[in-house]
């Protein structure tokens, strides 16, 4: 009787576990099937083509891939130093009475719906970028291709900045957990050598938590790559490849959000599904790379011995 129940329980949980695999396979299958038309029409040109023009039936998704990667990298460049700074302060330096409220505020950032970020981005961030930041950057760093062109406000820079704020909580929260998990004995070992607090953080705490921090950053990247609503609202939605961060752009997620309702003709729909497949593959590989990286780092650290 008991054995029968055990078997039943085993089957139920096994079914639950298998359903995960099943869902992924079904999704991948549907994406492949739906994108067949686009790929048979354009071949590899679907990836390399730089023109995305639904009106004339031309679908090259390179500008979307480019926009997705660049906006996410801008976000990382802005968010990583800030998040690590906050995490280090929270875990290592903040007085106890400040820790909880500040951690709570960071977590609150994560609870704001992305459409609110988008709205804030459009009505606050974009005018500020257009009137203040971009003219200033153009004047001082305008010799770099990154900061050339008219200050429009909307565009790649705005998207990157909104994304940065959106991925800040996850990178901060995970990094903070990682730092708190660093054994006190590591800090004391470094302090006992006569290190200052900063040297202790830099030489003992951060290296010990390195793999976890990389994991936190990759988690942030994963979020940035797939984020849709807020980006759609501020990136300008023009599929083009431009070196300047002042220019308008488009990401895979935002093109899908923008055009899914107009994709009446079969080719357009297929092209949208094909770009969804691309996003699926990109985020999938990012996660695999992240896992491999974390796995490799933790092996070379010999953390498994503990």
């Amino acid at each position: 009787m008991n054995k029968g129940r055990d078997t039943f329980f085993l089957q139920i949980t096994r079914l639950a576990a298998l359903s995960i695999v099943f869902i992924i396979i079904v999704m991948a299958h549907e994406l492949f099937r739906g994108s067949e038309l686009a790929f048979s029409r354009f071949g590899l040109g679907f990836l390399t083509g730089s023109e995305w023009d639904p009106v004339h039936g031309k679908f090259g998704s390179w500008p979307l891939i480019y926009g997705t990667l660049v906006s996410s990298l801008v976000a990382l460049a802005l968010a990583v130093p800030l998040s690590l700074g906050v995490a280090i302060f929270l875990a290592e330096l903040a007085p106890p009475w400040l820790r909880e409220p500040l951690s709570f505020l960071v977590e609150l950032l994560a609870a704001i719906p992305s459409v609110v970020y988008g709205l804030w981005g459009l009505f606050v961030l974009v005018p500020w970028l257009r009137d203040v930041v971009q003219p200033l950057l153009g004047k001082t760093l305008g010799f770099l291709p990154l900061f050339q062109g008219p200050p429009l406000g909307v565009g790649m820079l705005a998207a990157g900045m909104v994304l940065a704020i959106m991925i800040l909580p996850i990178i901060t929260a995970v990094s903070r957990e990682v730092l708190l998990a660093v054994p006190q004995s590591q800090r004391e070992a470094m302090l006992a050598l006569g290190a200052t607090r900063w040297e202790t953080i830099r030489r003992a705490v951060l290296p010990y938590g390195r793999s976890g921090i990389i994991g936190a950053i990759i988690l942030g990247l994963g979020r940035a790559l797939g984020e849709t609503m807020a980006v759609t609202m501020v990136i300008g939605n023009r599929p083009q490849v431009s070196a300047s961060l002042f220019d308008l752009g488009q990401t895979i997620a935002s093109v899908i959000a923008n055009e899914f309702s107009e994709g009446f003709d079969e080719l357009h729909l297929s092209a949208l599904i094909a770009s969804a497949l691309l996003l699926f593959i990109i985020t999938f590989s990012v996660n695999i790379i992240a896992r491999l990286l974390v796995w490799k780092v933790s092996i070379s650290q010999g953390v498994s011995r503990d």
Binding site: Q186, L191, A192, L193, G194, A195, P207, Y208
Partner: peptide, 21 residues
Amino acid sequence: PTEVRHRIGMVFQKPNPFPTM
């Protein structure tokens, strides 16, 4: 205190080498 700890070394109960080094 960092100068004090420079002059007076310490070894702990559990071996605590730096694992990344």
